[in-house]
């Protein structure tokens, strides 16, 4: 189990990380969310031991992460990085060997992973001759070739075409099912929800929200109402709540979670004949936006804190 506890890191006077904590079990995936510059990359680098922390601890199964453990982490940095002049096959074998695999094992693993990311036919090509999407597939193979126990992937989906996104999703689901722990960051929240129910949202170096996605949504102080009417809404009609959008015969409203559902529905019906009506907690993207814009939401609202 990965346990990040109260880690802090300052660059000059800016706090890149301010007492950040998170936990991650084997066989669990956690989405690491936050706006640009929130501290996601810094936290991930800290897990890899790439930066010296000002405070806090990072442990795996209760032990500080040493060189041997670091070799069991699969890491994909935010900026992609490979040797442009190396051949794809050699490159994957080299990193497998660096992670401690014997040469035959490394060659076998490289072959398997290149097949998995559908690049077997490019093994003899130089990395620089691949398209950027294909380079990213190689980058994924580099992170996975040594069968890591912990995956730390910084923006693994950025720049991938839809086919590659599907391949990556499949691979990650499979690794997690096989018992690997996965920490990944992404700005594509729908992808995050496809992969995991657990998220940690970080903003300006601090964890602002963490937990099960459904619990976070349910725990929000807001509810959203989407209503479509048979005819255009009369201009003078006053909807019961804050209007998010209002177009022709559709309206989207925000109301407080404490508002009585039955009374609300009755008020909505005053706008005309309803075609559809939906009352729901905010989407993850809305939870995220609210959390990082500082609209008071208590952290770790529900469920086991991560």
């Amino acid at each position: 189990m990965l346990a990040v506890k109260d880690i802090s890191k300052h660059f000059g006077t800016t706090a890149a990380l301010d007492r950040v904590s998170l936990k991650l079990d084997r066989g669990q995936a956690v989405g690491f969310l936050g706006p640009n510059g929130a501290g996601k990359t810094t936290a991930m680098r800290a897990i890899l031991g790439l930066i010296a922390l000002d405070g806090g601890t990072i442990t795996w199964d209760g032990q500080p992460i040493d060189a041997a453990m670091r070799s069991r982490i699969g890491y994909m940095p935010a900026e992609r990085g490979m040797y442009p002049n190396m051949r794809v096959g050699e490159h994957v074998v080299y990193f497998a060997e660096l992670a401690g695999l014997s040469r035959p094992a490394a060659e076998k693993a490289a072959e398997r992973w290149l097949a998995r990311v559908e690049l077997s036919d490019r093994a003899m090509s130089k990395v620089q001759d691949l398209s950027s999407g294909n380079q990213q597939r190689v980058q994924l193979a580099l992170a996975l070739v040594h069968d890591p126990q912990l995956l730390v992937l910084d923006e693994p989906f950025s720049g991938l075409d839809p086919v590659a996104v599907e391949v990556l999703k499949e691979v990650l689901v499979e690794r997690v099912a096989a018992g690997a722990a996965l920490l990944f960051s992404s700005h594509q929240l729908d992808l995050v929800e496809d992969l995991t129910r657990y998220v940690v949202i970080i903003d300006r170096g601090q964890v602002v929200l963490s937990g099960d996605v459904d619990a976070l949504r349910a725990g929000s102080a807001d509810r959203y109402v989407d209503a479509s009417f048979a005819a255009a809404l009369p201009p003078e009609w006053a909807p019961p709540g804050e209007v998010i959008s209002r177009t022709g015969n559709h309206v989207r409203l925000r109301v407080g979670a404490e508002v009585d559902g039955a009374g609300l529905a009755a008020q909505i019906r005053t706008g005309g004949q309803l075609v559809s009506y939906r009352y729901a907690p905010p989407e993850l993207s809305e939870v995220f936006r609210d959390a990082v814009s500082g609209r008071g939401v208590a952290s770790s609202i529900a469920g086991a804190p991560l």
Partner: peptide, 8 residues
């Protein structure tokens, strides 16, 4: 590339 290298 150095970030991955230094993890190994």
């Amino acid at each position: 590339v150095v970030e991955i290298l230094l993890s190994h």
